[in-house]
Structure formats: C-alpha cells, structure tokens
Amino acid sequence: MQSWFIHVGEMFQRAFIKEDRWKLYLSGLGVTLKVAFFAAILGVILGTVAALMKLSVKKNGKPSVRSIIATIYIDIIRGTPSVVQLLIMWFIIMKNCRNGVLVAVLSFGINSGAYVAEIIRAGILAVDHGQTEAGRSLGLSQAQTMMYIVIPQAIKNVLPPIGNEFIVLLKETAIVGYVSLSDLTRVANQVSSRTYEAFMPLIGAAVIYFVIIKILSILLGRLERRLRKSDRR
C-alpha cells in the first residue's frame, strides 16, 4: 500500500512538477478558455440572428428567403461533426490564417451558433403569442415587440439550455489539438507523450475541466435564479 502511494506520488511528480509542467496545463487551460469564451459569444450572436431569421415569415405565411438561409445553416452545421468543421476551417477555408485561436473561435462559434439558434427559436416560440399581439396592438413594431417584450421573456426560457450549450462547447474545444493548438487536452497528451504515462495527465485534465464546468454551472444557476425573481415579486 505504501509503495503504491509512493508510486502515485512519483507519477504526479513526473506529470505536473517535473520541468514545471504545471505551467503547460495552465497555458493549455488558457487556450481552452479563450477559445470557448469567444466562441460562446460568437455563438450567441450568430444563434440569435439565425433564430430571428428562421422565425421570419412572408406576409402570405410562407418561409422567407432569410428563414431558408438560416435553416440551411443550421442543418449543415448540425449535420456534420464539429471536428470535420474544424479541419475544413483550418486546412481549407482559412488555410493562410496563422492565428490558430481565431480559426478555432470561428469554427466553434459557427458550430455553437446553430445549436443556440434552435434553443433561442424554441425559447421565443414558448413566449405566449398574446404578448406579441398586445405589443403590436399598442402600435409597437415587430422589432420593438421582439426587443422589449418577447426576447426578455425568452431569455428566461433559454438560459438553462444555453448554459448547457456553453458546457458542451467548452468540452468540445478539446478537439483543437487536431489543428496543433495546445489546449488543455493537447497539453495532457503532450505530457503523456514525454512521460509515457497516460494516467496522471489525463486524470489531471479531467479534474481541471470538471472544476471549471462546476464553477460555470454554479454561476449560471445564480444568474437563472436572479432572472426568475421578476416572476415572484
């Protein structure tokens, strides 16, 4: 038993302490967070735009050109693996861009946008149509009604699934190693390719991901509770 502890301690030492390897994990975590954070922002912007486009209808009730474009975007993104999208973005579309984080942010942002669009669309549709009618009957335009009445209420509906999407996004960035970005997962792989031990680097990376996501979900839970207060005052 004692020798087992010593052994684990040695593995820990090799995986994190030796040659200041903990600094590698830290910079890997930095890349992971940078990509996830900016991709989440881009995803929310793209998702909101795509959701509003998809919801727009022509006067005769048929889908508009904008809504068809949004539908195609969502279909393509949801119908292809994110790692393939990343490789296409890296090796084909932006093959001359040297800023790897930027390429990853765009790829993941565009990917996340499609899922966010569906979440927001569902959130908007869940707001009682009477709210829109009341807004329009007062002379507010479609855009004003959306802006001041529907979207504020939709945000409460979409916050839990959006939070979930952020968590999925953060974890999905683990594939950026495919295009030579040194994110947390890649760093764990790099360390294990030096020490020839997969255990500590991978468990270490898993623990770091878990802690980050736990913090994220606590923050999201708090935000959700604050927004719900307006229902009960």
Partner: peptide
C-alpha cells in the same frame, strides 16, 4: 394601431415588466 386600443380576453400584460412599465412602454 396607435389610434386603436385593444383589450384581450387573456389580458396579455407584459410579464417581464412592472405595471408602470407595462403602461409607459409604448
């Protein structure tokens, strides 16, 4: 529509706004 007020069966007050804001929004 600004010239025609409408009252609905299900009230349709804006749930995200206070009573005062409901009235003053438009």
């Amino acid at each position: 529509r600004q010239k025609m007020g409408m009252v609905f069966q299900h009230f349709n007050l804006f749930n995200n706004l206070t009573i005062l804001d409901n009235i003053t929004l438009a």
